[in-house]
């Protein structure tokens, strides 16, 4: 096929557009000025120091980690159940049940969080980190199911039958064959659920009560122009963490594909 230079230039320009705002993060995180504006004023690490000294940030970060780890673990476990059921079994009401499980993917988060909020208030559950976890598990599960479904789908059914045929029980077949083969999917699901939860704002904002998490903390900082450079520093670090996590997720996804002998089609979704 003939190379089309204009299309290539357009694609590269598009990538630049995607990355442009993010490039500003390190630029202004190290810029020696409280005002986010050109021209740049010289190099400083003050904003990182300021950020480091902020106690609330640490608490918020710890809360976010607790939530993200819990949400990742629980949604991946729920994802394993649903993905295994949907790829391996036929059962009555399957499209409806799976549709409900996947629904949060297409439902505005505001509606999910308000619906949860009115019910939690009505039955008298106090808002806390726990209620955020409840909400995050709900919105992470569809992603976990999507990732794990493709992992379970690429498993040849006869592998399972072969193990069974060679004398293993269903339980030991799961442990010896299925689990190791879907492990890359499980790891990607954990990492992506973790990232989604860490990033999520609306549910954390409305279901957290007086507990602060990272995203809510960042949102709060935006009100104070003086705090903006420190947020830029924090953003820089978060972007780095995201890239590392995603690279790991991508690595495991590719390894999973290589292991099951499939063809790489690219992308998480």
């Amino acid at each position: 096929m003939r190379k089309n230079p204009s299309l290539r230039i357009y694609a590269l320009a598009y990538l630049a557009f995607l990355y442009a705002p993010i490039v500003l993060l390190p630029l202004f995180a190290f810029n020696d000025s409280r005002v986010i504006a050109f021209p740049l004023q010289g190099f400083t690490t003050n904003w990182f120091a300021e950020m480091w000294a902020d106690k609330t940030l640490f608490i918020a970060f710890r809360n976010s980690l607790t939530i993200a780890v819990s949400a990742a673990v629980f949604s991946t476990i729920l994802g394993i159940f649903a993905a295994r059921a949907s790829t391996r079994y036929k059962f009555p009401g399957k499209p409806g049940i799976l549709g409900l499980i996947m629904l949060p993917m297409v439902l505005p988060e505001m509606i999910v969080s308000m619906a949860l909020l009115v019910v939690l208030i009505a039955i008298g559950v106090p808002l806390s980190l726990f209620t955020i976890i409840l909400g995050h598990v709900l919105i992470c599960t569809p992603f976990a199911v999507a990732i794990l479904t493709s992992a379970f789908q690429s498993l040849d059914r006869s592998l399972e039958e072969a193990a069974y045929d060679l004398g293993e029980t269903p339980a030991s077949t799961f442990r010896l064959i299925i689990l190791p083969l879907v492990m890359p999917g499980i790891i990607s699901s954990l990492l992506i659920s973790f990232t989604i939860s860490l990033d999520e704002f609306i549910i954390a904002y409305f279901l957290g009560g007086n507990q602060t998490v990272l995203s809510v903390y960042i949102f709060g900082q935006f009100r104070f122009p003086a705090k903006v450079p420190a947020v830029m520093a924090l953003g820089t670090i978060l972007v780095c963490i995201s890239i590392v996590l995603l690279t790991i997720a991508e690595y495991f996804r590719r390894r999973g594909i290589a292991k099951s002998g499939g063809k790489d089609t690219g992308g998480f979704l």
């Binding site: 049940i97 409900l100 599960t141 199911v145």
Partner: peptide, 26 residues
């Protein structure tokens, strides 16, 4: 069918309690 339902039930029950029920309440 029974195995499938049993397997999907933890996730389904979670979605019913925390999504379907709240939406119905709304």
């Amino acid at each position: 069918a029974a195995n499938g339902l049993a397997l999907v039930s933890p996730t389904a029950i979670y979605a019913i309690l925390l999504l379907a029920a709240p939406l119905a309440a709304v």
